[in-house]
């Protein structure tokens, strides 16, 4: 078959896959699990933790090794892309007793 035809077919498949990914994101994001501000800031500690931290850190790992709130504050301020209000929510969530058990039950990691 003509190689230009094959290229066109492949390129249109790339386009359709991109479109499908965007549609998936739009549908998935339509049902937020956490209350969000008009600016998209997640103001629920557990949801903010899942959104910003859980892809690299286990809840228990942060909660156990960094109970020291000052260190947590510094870490969140210097690391990641959270707003201050989200940092506070995350810290509040991490220092709450049993938070990680709760998180483990619901699944800590975000979608891949």
């Amino acid at each position: 078959m003509h190689h230009v035809t094959v290229r066109r077919v492949a390129l249109s498949l790339w386009g359709l896959i991109g479109l499908a990914a965007a549609t998936f994101a739009w549908i998935a994001a339509r049902e937020p699990t956490a209350p969000a501000t008009p600016h998209g800031i997640v103001i629920d500690g557990q949801a903010a933790f899942r959104a910003h931290c859980a892809s690299c850190h286990e809840c228990a790992e942060l909660a156990a090794s960094e109970r020291d709130v000052a260190r947590l504050v510094n870490k969140l301020a210097s690391h990641g892309a959270t707003e201050v209000i989200e940092d506070l929510e995350i810290i509040g969530y991490l220092v709450a007793p049993g938070s990680c058990n709760n998180d483990a039950m619901q699944g800590t990691l975000p979608a891949r």
Binding site: A20, A21, A25, A34, R50, A111
Partner: peptide
């Protein structure tokens, strides 16, 4: 190619409020 995406949407419990960009990244993965 798209079946896993459709199934993920229907059965996945991954709606963690991670935002559009991350959901799109998930879909691409």
């Amino acid at each position: 190619v798209l079946l896993p995406l459709a199934v993920a949407l229907v059965t996945g419990d991954g709606r963690t409020g991670i935002g559009l960009r991350d959901y799109a990244a998930t879909a691409l993965g």
